[in-house]
C-alpha cells in the first residue's frame, strides 16, 4: 500500500477527481477535428450550430462521458467480483457476463438485421443478466451453497459455453463477423447519449450501492464464518454485490461492448495504492477505471489516424506495462 494514512487517501481521491476532469477535457479537445478550450466554452454556453459546436456537443462530449462511466463501472464490477469470489483473477469476463452479452448481440445481428442500436443495447444487457443469473444459480445449487470456488468455476464454464456458441455463429456467418468485430473488440466511438440514457439509471444506482456495501465487503473478506459470527447477513451482502456486478458489468458491455483488462487490472492497482479497505478501494477503482478508459480512448484516435483503434485494444496496450510494473513491485499477495 502506497497511501497509508486516511488524509493521504482523501487527498488522493481529490487529486484523482481533478485528473479525471482534466482527462474529460482532453477527450473533448483532442481528435481529428481541432478544438480549443474557448470553442468548448462557447459550445456549451453560446451554442451557434456551427459544425465545430455540433461536434463538441453531439460527438465529443457524449463520448467522453460514456468512456468515463464505462471505465468506472467496469472497475467497480471487477473489485466486487474479486472480493466475492475471493479470487484475484476474477473479472466480469470470467463471470460469463461479457460472453453472455456478446452471444445475444451476435444472435441479434445474425437473425434480426433490422434491429436498432438501442435494441442491441438492451439485448446485450439482457444477455449479461441471463448469464450472471445462470452462473449464480448453478453456483448456489447443491449442498455447499454459494462458495467462492463454485461461483468461479460455474462462471468459467458458462463463459466458455457462451463464447463457443458465439464463435460457432461467427464461423457460420462471416457477414456477421464483419459487423460485429468492432463491437466485440469494445469501443466507445460513435455512441451517443441515447445509447447510454436507458442504462444510466441502473448504473448510477449500482455505483451508489457499491459505495454503500464497501464496509460489509471488508467484513465478508475475513471469511464466511467470521463475517456471519460478527452479525453480517452474508447471503444478503453477496446477493446485493451480485446485483451490483450485473448492473455495472452488464451496463458497460451493453454500451461499449466487451472491454477487457480494466475489470481485472484496475482493482489490483487500486489495492496497491490504498490496501485492502474496500471503502477506499471501490472509489479509487472507479476513478482510476474512468481515467484509464478516457486516456485509452484519446490515444485510440491517434494511432492509425484517420481511422480508430477499438478502445479495448488501447486499454491493454496502455495498461499492460504499468500493470507489469506493479505486479513486479509486489503488493499484499492475499
Amino acid at each position: 500500500m502506497v497511501l497509508r494514512s486516511n488524509v493521504l487517501k482523501g487527498m488522493g481521491i481529490i487529486a484523482g477527481l481533478i485528473l479525471l476532469v482534466l482527462c474529460t477535457f482532453a477527450s473533448i479537445v483532442f481528435g481529428y477535428t481541432d478544438v480549443n478550450i474557448r470553442d468548448v466554452y462557447q459550445a456549451f454556453f453560446n451554442f451557434d450550430e456551427t459544425n465545430l459546436h455540433i461536434i463538441i456537443t453531439e460527438v465529443r462530449f457524449p463520448r467522453a462521458l460514456i468512456a468515463a462511466c464505462v471505465g468506472a463501472s467496469l472497475a467497480i464490477a471487477g473489485v466486487l467480483m474479486q472480493a466475492l469470489t475471493r479470487n484475484p483473477l476474477a473479472s466480469p469476463s470470467i463471470f460469463g457476463i461479457n460472453a453472455g452479452a456478446s452471444f445475444f448481440v451476435v444472435v441479434a445481428i445474425s437473425y434480426i438485421p433490422s434491429l436498432s442500436l438501442q435494441g442491441i443495447t438492451w439485448l446485450a444487457f439482457a444477455g449479461a443478466a441471463v448469464a450472471a443469473l445462470v452462473v449464480y444459480g448453478i453456483g448456489s445449487i447443491g449442498r455447499e451453497g454459494l462458495t467462492p470456488v463454485r461461483l468461479t468455476l460455474a462462471g468459467a464454464a458458462i463463459a466458455a459455453l457462451f463464447f463457443s456458441f458465439t464463435q460457432g455463429l461467427l464461423v457460420l456467418n462471416e457477414k456477421a463477423l464483419d459487423e460485429v468485430l468492432f463491437w466485440l473488440a469494445g469501443s466507445v466511438q460513435g455512441r451517443s447519449l441515447d445509447h447510454m440514457l436507458p442504462v444510466l439509471p441502473y448504473i448510477v444506482a449500482a455505483w451508489l450501492g457499491s459505495l454503500f456495501i464497501g464496509r460489509h465487503i471488508n467484513v465478508l473478506l475475513m471469511g464466511e464464518d467470521v463475517a456471519y459470527g460478527l452479525g453480517l447477513r452474508t447471503a444478503w451482502i453477496k446477493a446485493i454485490a451480485g446485483i451490483v456486478i450485473v448492473l455495472l458489468a452488464g451496463g458497460a458491455v451493453a454500451i461499449a461492448g466487451p472491454i477487457g483488462f480494466i475489470g481485472i487490472v484496475i482493482p489490483h492497482i487500486a489495492r496497491w495504492l490504498v490496501g485492502q479497505d474496500h471503502r477506499w478501494v471501490i472509489p479509487y477503482s472507479a476513478i482510476l477505471g474512468a481515467i484509464l478508459l478516457l486516456l485509452a480512448d484519446i490515444s485510440a484516435r491517434y494511432i492509425i489516424m484517420p481511422e480508430e483503434v477499438p478502445v479495448g485494444v488501447m486499454t491493454a496496450i496502455i495498461g499492460t506495462p504499468f500493470f507489469i510494473f506493479i505486479a513486479r513491485r509486489g503488493w499484499n499477495e492475499s
Binding site: P88, L89, L181, F182, A185, G260, F261, I264, V265, H268, I304, V309, P310, G312, V313, M314, T315, A316, I317, G319, T320, F323, I324, A327, R328
Partner: peptide
C-alpha cells in the same frame, strides 16, 4: 499468473488490431 494475464490481454489487443487493420 498476474503477469500472464497482463501479457495475455496485450496479445489479445494485438490480435484484434491486426485483424481489424
Amino acid at each position: 499468473i498476474l503477469i500472464g494475464i497482463g501479457i495475455s490481454a496485450f496479445t489479445q489487443a494485438i490480435i484484434t488490431m491486426l485483424m481489424i487493420l
